[in-house]
């Protein structure tokens, strides 16, 4: 236990090493302020609709202690029934189209959808064919499309900021 506590103190606070650009600072402050005002976290449900797993790695990275999405009040939930935002990755394999529709239908209104990554946006290497629909917007309504292969965590934080503003409006 002593070694563990020593290690914690030796590690320090990683998020202070983030690039503290005014834009990023403004976005993170706004997300935190939104959650404080709402009195609760923004709830995000992720659905992998046939991605290659690189987008998942970046969403997980956004939750590491460096980017620390939870610190701002963004919470990933296990059920779409608890979610404000549906975060969809992948070009929508035909085998995931029905589960994706079901997840969207299960969300309470108002609900927002973020199509995350080139494949979800329809500009990735996995294009429409017998097994793939080709983009999320052909299956459920999309509010924000986020290209990138995969989009890095700071871009996800930016997009969540935009979605939080839409939720207020």
């Amino acid at each position: 236990m002593e070694k563990l506590i020593k290690r914690i103190f030796a590690t320090g606070l990683p998020e202070v090493r983030l690039p503290a650009t005014p834009a990023h600072r403004e976005e993170t402050d706004a997300i935190a302020a939104f959650c404080a005002q709402a009195g609760r976290a923004i709830a995000v449900r992720h659905v992998d609709a046939g991605s290659c797993n690189a987008c998942e790695l970046e969403i997980l990275a956004a939750n590491n202690i460096y980017y620390n999405l939870a610190r701002l009040g963004v919470h990933f939930v296990a059920s779409p029934r608890h979610a404000d935002i549906l975060l969809v990755t992948g070009p929508v394999s035909r085998h995931m189209a029905d589960p994706l529709r079901a997840a969207y239908a299960a969300m309470p209104a108002p609900k927002l959808v973020l199509a995350f990554g080139d494949c979800a946006a329809g500009c990735g290497v996995h294009t429409a064919n017998y097994a793939t629909i080709g983009r999320v917007t052909d299956v459920i309504p999309v509010d924000i499309t986020l290209p990138g292969c995969p989009p890095p965590p700071l871009v996800l934080i930016s997009a969540l900021h935009r979605l939080a503003s839409m939720k207020t409006a």
Partner: peptide, 11 residues
């Protein structure tokens, strides 16, 4: 399995 089948070999 097969939910992520994207027809890669065809592509």
């Amino acid at each position: 399995l097969g939910y992520a089948h994207k027809g890669v070999e065809k592509a």
